[in-house]
């Protein structure tokens, strides 16, 4: 860990000013010298490992009054970026109308971590790939652009099979983001160039340029999320398959939401986690299920469509099979729910 300045921002403008990037600097947001910190559950971890070396941390916890609310409105669910994971997982409106969101949070990390971690920080969590986290490995395109990818032929049992490239196969292991991407959420941000709204599906960038992880600009802060309401949100579920029952990253996860009318799936929303490079909405799978009854056969066919483009390596080929089974299980589980 390197010495750093800790700046307590009392307001959003103060936070943005404290994190304002140096003019002309061309770095991805993760390498910017000023980093926002809320729960700090990952930032401090990566700083101790020397993987992140910010010169300044801008503490945004004081912004929770303005950006820490949960509101269910007619246009959907509004979540402030500073809502703690533990608050959202137990919120009655979310439990009733967006169960998949509550479940992704309940199955993440541990209660202690969820009490600290903010929703905004959670979606920006970085990969667990050991070759990225430990600077003792020379090859990591995510950490050192152009250095190579040690995971391609290394220990890669938990690496991604969807959205990967020969530059990076690191998995995005967050849970909450899979619900957001499946439900077509949008992200609200504020930054040096003002405020904007980004489709959550566009927030994380592709693996061909792994050093850059999101479309956020340096100094741009996530202030909240809106999850659109829809006839599918109540009949929704998250299935997370992992090596132990709790407090473990997923091997394969599926966030699904279904609009079933008259025995036929009118709309399916499908997010696939742990098996993918970034939060992954499977439009192919959604299309495969649309207009069909949900049966064992259609669930399996949907799952096959979801992994049609999967690219396995040495140790993670099983994730294609496991990912399919996980998705089929989630679809069948959700189909049995009341709408």
């Amino acid at each position: 860990m390197r010495p750093f300045n800790l700046d307590h921002a009392a307001t959003l403008p103060a936070a943005l000013a404290a994190a304002r990037p140096v003019a002309g600097a061309r770095v991805p947001p993760t390498a910017a010298p000023a980093q926002f910190i809320a729960g700090g559950t990952q930032m401090l971890d990566l700083m101790k490992l020397d993987t992140m070396q910010p010169a300044t941390l801008v503490d945004i916890n004081a912004l929770s009054a303005a950006h820490g609310r949960i509101e269910a409105k007619s246009d959907g669910l509004h979540l402030g970026a500073l809502v703690r994971m533990s608050e959202a997982e137990a919120h009655p409106d979310i439990l009733r109308d967006y169960p998949v969101i509550a479940q992704t949070l309940q199955m993440a990390a541990s209660p202690q971590i969820r009490n600290m971690a903010s929703l905004g920080g959670n979606v920006l969590q970085r990969t667990r790939c050991c070759y990225f986290r430990d600077p003792g490995w020379a090859q990591c395109n995510k950490r050192e652009p152009g250095s190579g990818c040690a995971a391609l032929d290394g220990v890669n049992r938990k690496h991604a099979v969807l959205g990967v490239s020969d530059q990076c196969i690191a998995a995005y292991s967050g849970d909450f983001a899979q619900a957001l991407v499946a439900l077509g959420a949008e992200v609200q941000t504020a930054g040096p160039n003002g405020v904007r709204t980004i489709a959550f599906e566009k927030l994380h960038t592709a693996s061909d340029n792994p050093h850059t992880e999101t479309v956020l600009a340096p100094g741009e802060l996530i202030t909240g999320f809106r999850v659109p309401s829809g006839p599918w949100t109540r009949r929704s579920a998250y299935v997370k398959i992992r090596d132990r029952e709790s407090y473990a990253y997923g091997l394969a996860t599926a966030a699904v939401a279904l609009d079933i009318q008259g025995g036929v799936v009118r709309e399916a929303r499908i997010g696939l986690g742990a098996v993918s490079y970034r939060p992954w909405r499977s439009h192919e799978a959604e299309a495969a299920l649309r207009g069909k009854p949900l049966t064992e056969d259609t669930a399996n066919a949907t799952a096959r469509a979801a992994f049609a483009g999967a690219k396995p390596r040495q140790d993670n080929a099983y994730l294609i099979d496991l990912g399919r089974r996980t998705l089929a299980r989630a679809l069948l589980q959700a189909s049995r729910l009341e709408a």
Partner: peptide, 23 residues
């Protein structure tokens, strides 16, 4: 272990699993 480098890769308690209460 990374077979090329002879170095351990899951050297923390998030990746080196032991049972938790739920197990």
């Amino acid at each position: 272990i990374d077979r090329r480098a002879a170095r351990y890769t899951n050297n923390d308690l998030a990746e080196y699993l032991i049972p938790v209460n739920a197990d």
